[in-house]
C-alpha cells in the first residue's frame, strides 16, 4: 500500500479497523406491496425489502429506483419517516423508467439504492411558524416533513401548507389534504392555476397564497418544493414578505446517475445536487438560480 495516496482515500477498504465499504452502486431488491393511482400520470407505491428488515430515511431524501433491465431513476421518498416498515414513493410517469415503474404491479420487484441526499431540517424550525410551499408533484417530497412536523406539532407556532396545482383534478393526496384541513392545528390552503368543473376554491399561483400570509415572517421557516421556476418565485415572495433567506429551503432537481457524488452529472455550480442537495438552504444557492444553463 502506498502511504501518501492512502491519505487521499478517506475510507480505505483495506483498513482492518473499517468494515469493507458497501458498494453504493448495487441495488437491493424490494417488493411492491401496494400501488395507488393518485392522478392520471402519478402513482404511489409501497415497498418492502425482499430480504426483510427496515428502511430508515430523513424527510426530503431520495432513492434510486431500478426497474429490471430498463434503468434507474431518482425518486424522492414520500412516506412517513417514523414508519420504517414500509418505503413509500410517489412517482409521475414522464420518462422511460418512470413509465416502466408505472407498469409494475403489486408482487413485482424493483431495486432500491439509497437513501441519498440532504433532508428538510424540520428540527431547525422548532419554535417557528413552519410554512410548506408545494407546487404540483412537489408535494410528494414535502410530505415526510409534514408528517414529522405533525408528530412534533407542539414544537411549532403555526404550521401552514400552501399548495398550488395545475387544475382541481391535479391535486395530489387530495383526501389527505382534506383530512389535514380538518385539523384545528394545521392550515391548508390550496390554489389551482386553472379552475375546472365545480371548483370553488382559490385560483391563482401559489405565490399569491404566500402574499396573503397568516404567519409571522420574522419567525418563520419555510420548505419549498416544486418546479424550479415556482421555487424561485416562491422564495422571492417569502423574502419579500420578510422571511429570512437563511430559513427558506428548496429542493433542486438535476440529472442523477449515481445518487452519491461519483458520476458528476448532477453538478450545479460547486454542488453535487445528489449529496450536497437535493435540499438546499435558499441563501446559499440563490445566486446559482440566476445563472442560465448552469
Amino acid at each position: 500500500m502506498n502511504a501518501p495516496l492512502r491519505d487521499a482515500l478517506h475510507a480505505p477498504v483495506r483498513d482492518p479497523l473499517h468494515a469493507p465499504v458497501r458498494d453504493p452502486m448495487v441495488p437491493v431488491p424490494f417488493r411492491i406491496e401496494k400501488v395507488r393511482r393518485d392522478l392520471s400520470d402519478t402513482f404511489t407505491m409501497e415497498l418492502v425489502p425482499e430480504a426483510g428488515g427496515e428502511f430508515a430515511f430523513q424527510p426530503g431524501q431520495f432513492n434510486m429506483l431500478y426497474v429490471f433491465g430498463v434503468g434507474e431513476v431518482p425518486i424522492s421518498i414520500s412516506g412517513d419517516p417514523a414508519d420504517r416498515s414500509v418505503l413509500v414513493h410517489t412517482t409521475r410517469a414522464v420518462g422511460q423508467v418512470t413509465e416502466a415503474l408505472d407498469a409494475l404491479k403489486p408482487g413485482d420487484s424493483l431495486g432500491v439504492r439509497g437513501p441519498f441526499g440532504t433532508s428538510w431540517p424540520v428540527e431547525s424550525a422548532f419554535g417557528h411558524d413552519l410554512v410548506f410551499v408545494a407546487g404540483g408533484v412537489g408535494l410528494a417530497p414535502l410530505r415526510p416533513a409534514i408528517y414529522q412536523a405533525m408528530a412534533n406539532r407542539q414544537r411549532f407556532g403555526r404550521v401552514i401548507v400552501l399548495y398550488g396545482a395545475r387544475t382541481p383534478e391535479d391535486i395530489l393526496y387530495k383526501k389527505e389534504l382534506e383530512r389535514w384541513r380538518g385539523r384545528f392545528d394545521l392550515d391548508v390552503l390550496v390554489t389551482v392555476d386553472r379552475a375546472t368543473g365545480k371548483w370553488g376554491g382559490n385560483v391563482g399561483v401559489v405565490t399569491n397564497l404566500i402574499a396573503r400570509g397568516g404567519f409571522d415572517p420574522l419567525n418563520t421557516t419555510s420548505f419549498v418544493c416544486g418546479p424550479e421556476v415556482m421555487m424561485r418565485y416562491a422564495a422571492q415572495a417569502l423574502e419579500k414578505k420578510g422571511v429570512d433567506t437563511g430559513r427558506i429551503w428548496v429542493s433542486v432537481e438535476r440529472n442523477m446517475k449515481c445518487g452519491c457524488g461519483l458520476c458528476g452529472h448532477c453538478q450545479w455550480g460547486p454542488h453535487f445536487t445528489c449529496k450536497d442537495g437535493p435540499v438546499f438552504r435558499y441563501d446559499r444557492v440563490a445566486d446559482l438560480f440566476q445563472i442560465r444553463e448552469l
Binding site: D41, R92, V94, G95, G135, G136, V137, G164, A165, R166, D170, D193, G204, V205, T207, N208, A211, G226, P227, V229, M230, Y233
Partner: peptide, 21 residues
C-alpha cells in the same frame, strides 16, 4: 405589478407534464 407577474407565472403552466413526453 404583483397581479401582472402572477398572471405571467400562471400562464407558464408550470405543473404541466414535460413536453417531449
Amino acid at each position: 405589478a404583483h397581479r401582472l407577474s402572477a398572471a405571467r407565472l400562471q400562464m407558464l403552466d408550470l405543473y404541466a407534464p414535460p413536453k417531449p413526453a
